[in-house]
Design a protein around this nucleic acid. Sequence first.
RNA 1: GCCGUUGUAGCUCAGUGGUAGAGCACUUCCUUGGUAAGGAAGAGGUCGUGAGUUCAAUUCUCAUCAACGGCUCCA
Length: 646
Amino acid sequence: MINITLPDGSVKQVEKGTSSMDIAKSISEGLARKVLAATVNGIVFDANRPINEDATLKLLTWNDTDGQMTFWHSSAHLMAEAVESMFPGVKFWVGPPLDNPKGFYYDMDLGDRKMTEDDLAALEKKMNELAKQQNVFSRKEMSKADAVKYFTEKGDEYKLDLLQNLNDGEITFYTQGNFTDLCRGPHIPNTGFIKAIKLTNIAGAYWKGDEKNKQLTRVYGVTFPSQKEMDEHLAMLEEAKKRDHRKLGKELGIYTMDDQVGPGLILWMPNGGVIIEELEKLAKESEQAAGYKRVVTPHIAKESMYLTSGHLPYYADSMFPPMEMDGDRYYLRAMNCPHHHKIFDAELRSYKDLPLRLAEYGTCYRYEQSGELFGLMRVRCLHMNDAHIYCSKEQFAQEFKAVNDLYLKYFKIFGIEKYVMRLSLHDPEKLGQKYVNEPELWKETEELVRNVLIETGVPFVEVKGEGAFYGPKIDVQIWSAIGREFTLATNQVDFAQSRSFNLTFTNAQNEKEIPLIIHRAPLGTHERFIGFLLEHYAGKFPMWLAPVQVKVLPISDKFVDYAKAVSDKLKNADIRAEVDDRNEKIGKKIRDTEMMKVPYMLVVGEKEMNENKVAVRRQGKGDIGLKSIDEFMNEAVAEIKERRAE
RNA sequence: GCCGUUGUAGCUCAGUGGUAGAGCACUUCCUUGGUAAGGAAGAGGUCGUGAGUUCAAUUCUCAUCAACGGCUCCA
């Protein structure tokens, strides 16, 4: 007999070799129907795998992330079985579960054959058939020698590649129905648990994620234990689509694009222009207060500058090809830093000038690969909330912290809570290749940056091998409505470019010293930031950012003059107000204004005109009552001035 | 750049081997209406672009451009 400890602390005595499923059954039949897998002493186990020693047991159901992961991983196997039946001879790579977006994929080599979306429906049908058979997932251990022999005979180079990293005792096979796969498991008890299946798309994916390798076919899918959950999932995706900045950007007249202008080139429409103005106002205010100085620099420069900076030839692929002029090659800039370095270098600098903080909303051009363009989030012309801080080593920690504090200030204003701070470090093995060869400086600055983060109490993750070539950085990662991850803002250390540009200052000992540089863009770029804000607010911008802040809606033509008087008064108080003087009924005007997500509507008719008042209506909330014009105006001005979230 | 999908009116989308339709938006008229769509009429498209097949192509084939879903890459 062995002792099984359950999460509530109770201990069950069972025969050696009893499975978690048996234990679930002994508790209740209902529970047994829901058990997908279990953790035994913290290790995820198949529900029907025998337990041979004393253990703490947690039964996993759909409510556990590990349960869902097991479910989707098993679904990938089910899909593989269906694919193999329709494409005999197919070779499989890996088929992991996914948390975001939810579901799973399987990478496969179809040889000369091609799979198209038409095949997905047939595959789904086959999967449903196989699921109904309630085929059991059975586990079998195998020696490495036997496994290698098995896949060599099969001619499966992919699984042989996987085996290279495995040893005896780690190699298990799972079989369900007619499909057997090398797999560490675990799996759900049988395929019958999978009740709702949807294969979502088909894509190419490079083997091992390396574009030099062969491209495999990847099929994405998602499954659920009931149709109800599938329906909920699909409804959620529909909701997410409504937040998509590309859809909202069009509906709200924020931006447009045009074939003749070119891909990835944004045309900001008047409503977008207002948001840009407001963001720049915010940036300039806070930078002014934090001791930054504004500069303005050209969008192009000669090749030699980018040779000095080290951006060419390493960055050449991301830059537009050069223009030949007067025997020189000029590049559209992909970054602002070299221009700013030249301003630093234009005068002899003393330690008394430092820290020198140069700020510019700099326009950059990047030749992003065509497949990477994505609405406002990934474009070819961008406006960066850029600044470069030149400081001494002693000043560095304080300066870096000040930048970090600026981030947090902005996050509070915008109510940004769902993000991940990522500390990107260098990879010591790639010093001199991907990273400038300054091991001591790397170590030192990474430590400084980490300490700032710890001090500020911001949760962060560390990633090795993600640093810039010139130093470590902190990125703020966010997710778009459709679940794609982006870097919203960045704060980078640079101890390389000051060397390549020969930047120096005279220290108190009258010696030349090389400054450290901080590159920072807390508001990222206008493009990505506004794309993010559109999704973050679902188009319902707070008052201070809203392109139109107040719409005055006269009940009929008779009150248009009064409406215009109200609107003029608001405009004089710097409120963006407009009158809807169309020949429409009030219901129609309200509907249209609601859809444009204007924060306030002022309905004015006979009653309001006679009393010098307005009937206030808040977007999304409805009628909030009569107010005098002055009362509304004062409140509105305060709401804007304080940049209130609502 | 690679794999897959799509491209019809300003927007959302039907449709067809015999040179095109709906709703919304737009213009004009009627209506002057009190908190999420009043009514009528009108205007608007060489069906992404180029070539091929055909008596005939928006429809079939190929190429190309762009967008979308991924991969790689990045703010």
